[in-house]
């Protein structure tokens, strides 16, 4: 595939690059939404969204399905450089979602990024104190997500709304600085950025309401069983 840095700002859709979206746009979007709703209301719970066979370019299944479910002409989308430079990704998002692309993360309703191309958290929109909902939702493609945080230096111990006691979570491949910024962002609640981490057909959410502690400081969070909910 050809990479053109400025292609995200072009209006054109290349029909030769298009691929199928959902088999059933209405039913499949409902199914994916319910997974995302459960993920966002029960932070750290890993869910599987496996309703598409092929995905455009570097998009993985769960991020592609979230895009098909939530993006439309009313949502501004920021893509990390590799995704923005991929005509396949851009053409398919434009065609299936009709979403406008923006070049500044702060303008985005959704930012869709590869883990090694994350924008600095402070460059996203955190909402304002009267309308904290007017924030960017960050969708990050990661290598793997797991509730097993034993022997992981990337592990988190999560507490807060949606979590009965505590839940372990590790999203592989997130830069240290991003993980640090995310932990620190909790001080500014209700301002903040809600995150969804997507690994292949799995997804997990980390809304701003979730308290995060690095799990290596915690004794009680070893060997959390993987919570698979369907």
């Amino acid at each position: 595939m050809s990479v053109q840095v400025n292609s995200m700002n072009r209006g054109a859709v290349r029909s030769d690059l298009l691929m199928a979206g959902f088999d059933d746009a209405v039913q499949d979007a409902q199914k994916v939404f319910r997974k995302v709703l459960k993920a966002m209301s029960e932070p750290g719970t890993i869910l599987t969204a496996d309703l598409t066979d092929k995905t455009p370019g570097a998009l993985n299944k769960s991020s592609w399905e979230i895009a098909l479910t939530l993006f439309d002409a009313d949502t501004k989308i920021w893509l990390s450089p590799t995704l923005a430079g991929d005509d396949v990704v851009v053409s398919n998002l434009r065609f299936h979602c009709q979403c406008p692309m923006v070049s500044e993360p702060a303008e985005a309703d959704f930012a869709l990024a590869l883990a090694d191309e994350l924008p600095e958290l402070k460059t996203l929109n955190w909402g304002n104190s009267e309308y904290p909902d007017q924030s960017t939702t960050l969708i990050v493609q990661v290598e793997a997500i797991t509730n097993q945080v034993q022997d992981s230096d990337e592990g988190w111990c999560l507490t807060g709304p949606g979590i009965e006691t505590e839940r372990g979570l590790s999203a592989k491949g997130l830069p240290y600085s991003f993980r640090l910024d995310l932990v620190n962002s909790r001080k500014r609640f209700p301002l903040g950025v809600d995150c969804v981490f997507c690994a292949d057909d799995q997804l997990v959410a980390l809304p701003r309401s979730t308290e995060i502690k690095p799990s290596d400081n915690e004794d009680g969070i070893r060997n959390t069983t993987q919570q698979e909910a369907n």
């Binding site: 746009a25 209405v26 979007a29 409902q30 939404f33 995302v36 709703l37 966002m40 209301s41 479910t69 939530l70 439309d72 009313d74 949502t75 309703d109 904290p132 909902d133 924030s135 939702t137 949606g162 209700p190 809600d194 809304p207 701003r208 309401s209």
Partner: peptide, 17 residues
């Protein structure tokens, strides 16, 4: 479906805050 998407996005913000 357009109304559903709008409400779904609002709902996700509602559970996050």
């Amino acid at each position: 479906e357009q109304s559903k998407r709008m409400l779904r996005r609002a709902m996700l913000k509602a559970v996050a805050i």
